[in-house]
Write a protein that binds this DNA or RNA. Structure first.
Lengths: 316, 316
DNA sequence: GTTTGTTACGGCTACCGTAAAGATC
DNA sequence: GATCTTTACGGTAGCCGTAACAAAC
């Protein structure tokens, strides 16, 4: 049994059982892959792929288990290389954070700044995307750490660590009737105006909808954006009332706008850090997490990684 | 990076950093091992072994982590082969139980009988040893399942699943004064006679000592044995009073002896099943566990395997 | 007919084992 | 001096890639 054979196997599965594409991705020839997979099947004594004549059409039952374990082996082989890098160059290396606009724009800058001055030699890169994209980046190994709110569950490979809770605010232009309200604002007050808020795939948008539904209100959402700056821009233009994360409102910068706390209108959201359970994290990655959320020490994080991984059956 | 290199690495470490012995164990040449380890070190960019001139004297810090992961990779490669066997021959295969005399003699026969009639093609073998030996057999992969009482903790590689609690009995020859006692037996009654009980390394012997100590009594142990049959033999000969597991007393067979329940004198002991967390268990292995302890279903066991593994630093 | 997977074959890498030399105890 | 590890070197297994063939959509 050789590691390459496992690599071939996993890649073929990843490419939708297409040997040719797998060969291209791995910069090698189809026949090589075909042969090595055959050899592995012979050695293990089981068919891994079901072939219809000469076409790979499915994975056998043992094949599914074998693929699962093969992935774990390859992941750990990766980890070996990382350990090497870690010790060769304790301070240097790279760290990739996958996150949403809101986190990148408002929550992370403080952490990033502290991290960069502590580890000037680490090449830090940030990838932006939807919560789903972010999770997949980490699952695929394209990013080391995911930071996002909601929308990230059923990935058995990921451990999700709660960082902090946050609430929402209603944002209106100065002089807007809602700003002059002399009582606590209610959902019905908000629902009376056209709304501007996050896109559906993002930051607990479903949570906002639920809050309205519960009171039998149907909000009139006239614009959905994936980032808070766009929302604020259109609120300034008078297009409607904005609902966004409280942290995304900066009084000094956002002149002309007024924020009204809406913590009592919507359930708080929880921002979480996600990492692959079986990935080897560099020392500075743990420090990054701790800088972002001080209660997540290295010990806490490593502890959570090993807890009850649901035995998820992954379907394509 | 190749699997063989990892195999070499782990074997050298196992053989006390002696490359020559590792070569012999693996039926290959020393130079081969030396070279491959060098190549791996080059590839990873770290020294794994510390060499004093030409002699391997220690493992570096990164080396320890690398060894740890390498072992896991090899274990999973083993698992791949097992999956092969499992599916080639669902009913056949082998299962090795490591256990103590008491379990093998009194607790297991019922389970074994049921198992053999269910899986007549499985080659079942039982290895006997002290709790420590048993645990090591499973850690080393020489046995699949350990069954023992106490004395098995700090092995981070093993998951220990509680099976049942049991109590002890005092065993005396017929006509012995303790048998005629008209009140509940006390520790002081027992301490008045010479005692025959388990060897120190076994079945909660320390627990017996503690019970006496707590009451300020110093028991006079005249004979320690590693199996219950020996204890009963000497009790029959009048050498002293026996303390053994209640299940080890069989009224029909042990004529001439009387058992007195001592559940109130000593804390109950818990018998546990131990398996390697990262081993792949054949389907029938799960069935064996469930036959032995019905509450340990396949789901329960697999669940426990993944729980909080303490990050143990293993020293040689 | 086009795409896709297997078989056949040749080149070449690199692994393994033997032999010898260097180092440590 | 004995044990142990590394270096040097030759044989060979096996991996890879090209080319041709076969099957499926």
């Amino acid at each position: 049994m050789k590691l390459q054979q496992l690599r071939y196997l996993v890649e073929v599965s990843k490419q939708g059982l297409n040997v040719s594409e797998a060969a291209e991705k791995l910069h090698t020839s189809q026949p090589g892959i075909s042969k090595q997979i055959r050899l592995l099947e012979d050695e293990l004594g089981v068919q891994i792929f079901i072939r219809n004549g000469k076409r790979v059409v499915d994975v056998t039952a043992p094949g599914r288990e074998i693929l699962h374990i093969a992935e774990r082996i390859l992941m750990q082989a990766q980890n070996l290389k990382r350990i090497g890098e870690e010790f060769v160059n304790v301070e240097g290396g790279s760290l990739t954070i996958a996150t949403t606009h809101t986190q990148a724009r408002y929550a992370l800058p403080r952490t990033i700044k502290a991290f960069l001055s502590r580890y000037p030699k680490v090449r830090l890169s940030i990838k932006q995307g939807s919560p789903t994209q972010i999770s997949e980046m980490v699952v695929e190994g394209e990013a080391d750490i995911a930071i996002a709110t909601e929308g990230i569950d059923h990935y058995p490979e990921l451990a999700m660590l709660p960082c902090y809770e946050w609430n929402r605010s209603i944002v209106v232009p100065e002089g807007h009737p809602l700003a002059a309200l002399d009582r606590k604002i209610g959902l019905d007050d908000v629902a009376a105006y056209p709304l501007v808020t996050y896109d559906f795939a993002f930051t607990g948008r479903s949570l906002i909808n639920r809050a309205f539904e519960k009171q039998g209100l149907t909000p009139n959402v006239v614009l959905t954006a994936i980032d808070s700056d766009v929302i604020k821009t259109y609120v300034t233009l008078g297009l409607g009332v904005g609902i966004l994360a409280t942290m995304a409102f900066e009084p000094e910068r956002d002149r002309g706008l007024v924020a009204i706390d809406a913590g009592h209108l919507f359930e708080p959201s929880v921002t979480r850090i996600g990492v692959r359970r079986d990935a080897y994290l560099r020392g500075y990655a743990f420090d990054f997490i701790e800088l972002f959320s001080p209660h997540l020490t290295r010990e806490t994080v490593q502890g959570s990684l090993l807890m009850s991984e649901p035995e998820g059956e992954e379907e394509e």
